[in-house]
Structures are given as structure tokens and as C-alpha cells.
Design a protein around this nucleic acid. Structure first.
Lengths: 234, 234
DNA sequence: CCGGAACGTTGCGCCGGATCAAACGGCGGC
DNA sequence: GCCGCCGTTTGATCCGGCGCAACGTTCCGG
């Protein structure tokens, strides 16, 4: 197995404030791993044998209900940790993580967590901050689901996506990985039909451009107004 | 100000595994405080100047949207921490906390957090575990909101409440603080009207007994089946 | 080049639950 | 003991969005 270079992770948020030597010590225990599109990084309910850092690609975190319905909990972008169940005292993954495109991750054995948290206090603190802001995000989503109707929820979801992973193109800000109407529906608790209707309506108004597994937002500001519900309905 | 006795907090989950002397050191910096029913422990958006331990009573954590709608994020029971925004690197409270009944809390100045986390590793670890399980709970709630319809959501909410705060009475398991249909509606993202209709329907079937600001579950197992949607609809 | 699968679009009917409206009943204050 | 208020009940109506179904389109493999 090839040696991992420190520059891979130096400067990423989870490692903020760590000494170079400590980065090396962490890397020495990491294993780099390729995950092909549509393959799982880990599966819901499995024993949490490892935690991961996404180096390249995008990952969907999915929860499946007993009756088989799926909900996309969040998308992970490069530089973020995933599968940190161990840090939170859980022994099993609460969701599945699936590669949205071909991905590269670093993997550490889960049992190293307490060791790392103790030896690298900045790493621990950074992680807990992440968990805190994920808790925030999730609570905000509960509020959204409880108070907003579908159109605004979908608008919010798109805005979050372009914020996280947007890439400028001549069509506007493009979501940087293949995403279907079904995916958006699973993020917002609706059906692909409704998402399709919304997107075509928005496309007619020139707010977005979308195609097969692809969405680009041309008028983010206008979409924002829509998301916040201060738009007279045409 | 009167001296706080160690027995107040010894044995509570957040202090699991701490030395008695350390409990005393923490208590020495705490201030005990009474909060009258319907008063706020802290308010959304305020600077997070303190974190709290609920000693007695019950507290509602509420998020309010820009247009004034409210969502009850969770209920806090005695022995739980609240207002721990500081632990998560936030400087402001993301929600309000309102006493559901007369309450007693301990308050610590927020700036002590890093000190405590460093000096009492068990305390820090316990807290992060709590945050982790709250993240879990919240994600589960997102899944519920996205996939279940109102009846099942309300059933789930009641089951969680009796699980957290249930007290046995001759009417069944009673929720241990005053709770209105409006409150339940704000927990589940529906209206008080719908909650009222559901409760009367359930009362007719002998599943619950409810009255003004009071709900008791007489048939938790049956309600559980309903919550899980494996009940032929009558 | 062809055929099939996967993804997307669109029309239609229906229903769960929100909204609006009104009246009731118990509890606390005076 | 009476009054007023707050929480609750119940009815009537309306509509957003889901379910279903059919069709179009792009992509991929053979």
C-alpha cells in the first residue's frame, strides 16, 4: 500500500489546528479506498467498524424505513467526515452511505476513535463542532418539513445543494453530481412526479435548467425568494 | 446563595463516571435558579451566555419560524442538559426553552465549557454522546415526517412522550406535565384540529384518556401498532 | 442499428388533512 | 356564584399533492 501524503488532508476542516506530525501519525493508520458509483461506503445497521473521510466525489447518506421507503438524510462533500457513529457512542451505523459518483475515501478502524480524540484534541473538537452543526441542520429540516409546503421545501433543498456543491457553468450554478427527480423527492418527502412538475414550471420561468440527472439553477436569488415564501403566486 | 449538595447531580447521566471531588468543583461554579411555568430558560437567537441542567420540571424546546409558526423540537426531562450551544461551537441559542411547569435548573456560565470539557473528560464524553443521540432522534424524526402520515406521527409522538415522562395512574400512563392539542400539533407538524379528532377517535376505541391539557395512554401496545402502520384500518 | 431499460413528463381523479367557522365546557378570577 | 377566557370539539368546505397510468426520451448493451 502506498504512502499517503500529508497534503491530502492538511487544511481540511476536520484537521484544522493540528500539527503536521500529528497528521502523519493519523495518516499512518489510514487506508485509502476507492468506491465505485452506486456502491456503499457502509450500510445501515452494520457494525460501525470504521469511520471515513471523503477525499473525492460525493456521497448520499440514506435512511431506509422498515417498509422500504428511503429518505436522503444528507449529501457529503469532499473534505467531510462520514460514518462517525463511533464518536457518538454508537456501535452501529444509523444510515447507509452510497457513492453518488466514483469516490475516494480514507478509512480508519473505528476502535481508534477514542485514541485519536484523546491524542489530538483539535481533531476531536472539530468533529464535535461538525456534529453540532449537523444537529442544527437536521433540526432546521424538521422545522421546514413541519411548516412549509412542498414547493418551498424543494426550493430550499436545491439551494442547499448548490451551496454545498454548486459549480458555475454557462447554464448557471450546476449541482456537481448526477441527481434524479427521485433523489430530490427523497430529500424533501414528496414524489418524483411533484418534483418533475415543479422543475418544469421553474424552467418555464427561467429559474433553472434541468435535464436527465442534472439540475442547474440560473436564478438563485429568485429561487431564494420562492423558498422563503415571499413571492406573490403568479 | 446556598451551598449545592453533590447528591443533587451525582448519578445523573451527564456526570456518569465523575469523581465526587470533581462534582463539587463543578457545583461550586453553578447557580441554582427557579423558572416559573411559561417562562423562558433562554430565547432563540440570544447570545449563549450559559448552559443548564434541568433538576426538576419539564422544558419545551421551541423553534419559531420567521413568519411566527412554532415547532416543538423536543422536551427536556429532569437530569438532562439544555442550552449546550457552547459545546457545539455556537455562540447563540438556536431555539427557545420554555418551562412547561415550574422548574429548577442549574446554570453555568457558557465560557466555562471548554474548561470543563478539558478538566472532566467523562463529562465531555457524556455530553457528546447525548448530542449524538439527539442527532439520531432528530434524523429519525425527519424520516417520520417525510414518510408517515399524520395519524402515525401523532401516535409516535405520544409514545415518545410516555416513554420519556410517563407516570402510571389508574387511567393508564399519563404524560407528566400539561400538554395541549396545540402542543402535540407543533410536535408533529399538523393542526390542533386534526390532533383533537385523532384523540377523540382513539378515546372512543379505548386507547387513550385525555382531557384539558392532559393525555394518558391506556393501551400503549395497541398505539404502537398504529404508529408502525400495521393495523388494518377499521 | 435495434431494443430495452431507466429516467422524465403529463393528465386525471381522489383523498387526507388544512382552513374556516361556530359552539361548547371547564377553570380561574373577581 | 357568575363571568370570561382558553382549550377543545365538531361540522363544512376546499385544495395541494399523491397515486395511477400512459407516453416520450435518452442512454446503453448487444
Amino acid at each position: 500500500m502506498s504512502r499517503l501524503d500529508r497534503s491530502l488532508i492538511a487544511g481540511l476542516p476536520p484537521f484544522e489546528g493540528m500539527a503536521p506530525a500529528d497528521l502523519d501519525r493519523m495518516l499512518a493508520q489510514a487506508r485509502s479506498q476507492r468506491i465505485a458509483k452506486d456502491e456503499a461506503v457502509f450500510e445501515q445497521e452494520d457494525a460501525a467498524h470504521a469511520f471515513f473521510l471523503l477525499l473525492d466525489g460525493h456521497v448520499r447518506v440514506i435512511k431506509t424505513t422498515p417498509d422500504g421507503q428511503q429518505v436522503i438524510v444528507r449529501y457529503i462533500s469532499p473534505g467531510e467526515l462520514l460514518g462517525i457513529a463511533h464518536a457518538l457512542g454508537r456501535t452501529t451505523y444509523p444510515a447507509s452511505a452510497v457513492a453518488a459518483v466514483d469516490c475516494v475515501v480514507l478509512a480508519w478502524p473505528g476502535h481508534l476513535w477514542p485514541e485519536f480524540a484523546a491524542a489530538f484534541p483539535n481533531f476531536g473538537a472539530n468533529t464535535y463542532k461538525t456534529v453540532g452543526s449537523r444537529l442544527q441542520d437536521t433540526q432546521t429540516r424538521v422545522v421546514e418539513m413541519a411548516t412549509e409546503q412542498v414547493e418551498r421545501r424543494v426550493a430550499h433543498a436545491l439551494l442547499r445543494l448548490i451551496d454545498q456543491t454548486g459549480r458555475k457553468t454557462e447554464d448557471g450554478i450546476l449541482i456537481d453530481f448526477p441527481i434524479s427527480r427521485q433523489d430530490i423527492a427523497e430529500m424533501t418527502g414528496t414524489t418524483l412526479h411533484t418534483v418533475s412538475r415543479l422543475l418544469t414550471a421553474w424552467e418555464d420561468q427561467g429559474l433553472v435548467k434541468s435535464g436527465r440527472q442534472k439540475v442547474a439553477v440560473t436564478e438563485p436569488h429568485h429561487l431564494q425568494l420562492l423558498a422563503e415564501g415571499r413571492l406573490p403566486k403568479s
